[in-house]
Amino acid sequence: MRLAILVAGLPLALGCAASAVQAQPAQPPTNAPGIFSCVDAYGRTITSDRPIADCLDREQRELTPSGTVRRRLEPSYTAKEQAEREERARQAQIAAAKQTDERRRERALLMRYPNDATHERDRAEALGQIDAVIQSARKRQGELADERKKIDAELEFYRNDISRAPPALRRQVEESTQSLGVQNRFIGEQEEEKRRVNQRFDDERTRLRQLWAPEVTRK
């Protein structure tokens, strides 16, 4: 009797199982072909069952049948385009490194010169050192000028005709001329160095005023 009840209920159980299977939505196989999608140069969205030729220069997305992104395809470049792309990346790296270096110099400048007084003190010290060198050079210039007066006095004996002067005196005239020329050029170079130092400090002060401004604002 029990066996008969079990056998009789078997078709009903099978029917319920079949209904349950039919009620579940079909799941696409994981290796189902994807759908490729991109936005072309004209702003149009294009879809295809294979990579899209009109979007080789831009990113494409491969979507699963359910619409999720399976993968992203990077743009394809010609050799020239790739070289240009790499050059742009290189220039961007150079610019970023330059900016980082500039920020580092600014921090060092602020640490060295926290205010205007320290900056002007360094300017005065740098210019003072150059002035000391110029003063020493001018002293030597005066000594050479005195020596030349003595040489010229001897040359008057020969009516200032260098060709009639003895070899030793002519050599003195030549050496004196060269020494005075060297000393004059040296003093000129030091005066030019003073201008460069002043210009450097002027440029630094202009930048420092911009860097000091936030400090003043916070105070």
Rank of each mutant, 00 (worst) to 15 (best):
M1Y: 09
A4K: 07
A4M: 08
A4Q: 07
A4P: 01
L6W: 07
V7N: 04
L12Q: 04
A13V: 13
L14H: 12
C16H: 08
S19C: 11
Q22P: 00
A23M: 12
Q24L: 13
A26S: 09
A26I: 12
Q27S: 04
Q27A: 10
P29E: 15
P29V: 09
T30P: 08
T30E: 15
A32W: 09
F36L: 02
F36W: 14
F36C: 05
S37K: 09
V39N: 04
D40P: 02
A41H: 04
G43K: 03
S48E: 06
P51G: 05
I52E: 01
A53D: 09
C55D: 01
E59R: 15
R61K: 15
E62F: 06
G67W: 01
R72P: 00
S76H: 06
Y77W: 09
K80H: 10
E81Q: 15
E81Y: 06
Q82V: 00
R85M: 14
R85T: 07
E86L: 11
E87S: 11
R88F: 01
R88A: 11
R88E: 10
A89C: 04
A89W: 00
R90D: 08
R90W: 01
A92W: 04
A92S: 09
A96S: 07
D101W: 02
D101C: 00
R103N: 06
R103G: 01
R104I: 02
R107G: 08
A108D: 10
A108V: 02
A108G: 03
L109W: 03
L110A: 05
L110N: 02
R112Q: 14
Y113K: 03
Y113M: 03
Y113V: 01
Y113D: 03
P114L: 06
P114S: 04
N115Y: 05
E120W: 09
R121H: 04
D122L: 06
A124V: 13
A124S: 08
A124F: 07
G128H: 05
G128D: 03
Q129N: 14
I130P: 01
I134D: 00
S136T: 15
K139T: 12
K139Q: 13
K139M: 12
K139W: 15
G142N: 09
E143D: 13
L144G: 06
A145I: 09
E147P: 00
R148W: 12
R148I: 06
K149R: 14
K149D: 13
K149C: 02
I151A: 10
E154A: 14
L155S: 04
F157M: 10
Y158E: 03
S163R: 15
R164F: 09
R164G: 01
P166N: 15
A168V: 04
A168E: 13
A168C: 00
R170A: 02
V173F: 10
V173H: 07
V173K: 05
V173M: 13
E174A: 14
E174K: 08
E174Y: 04
S176D: 01
S179H: 04
V182S: 02
R185D: 08
F186P: 00
E189Y: 08
Q190M: 15
E191H: 10
R195P: 00
R200L: 09
D203K: 08
D203R: 07
E204K: 07
R205Y: 10
T206M: 06
T206H: 12
T206D: 05
T206F: 12
R207A: 03
L208D: 05
R209G: 11
L211F: 05
L211R: 02
E215H: 14
V216K: 07
R218S: 13
R218W: 00
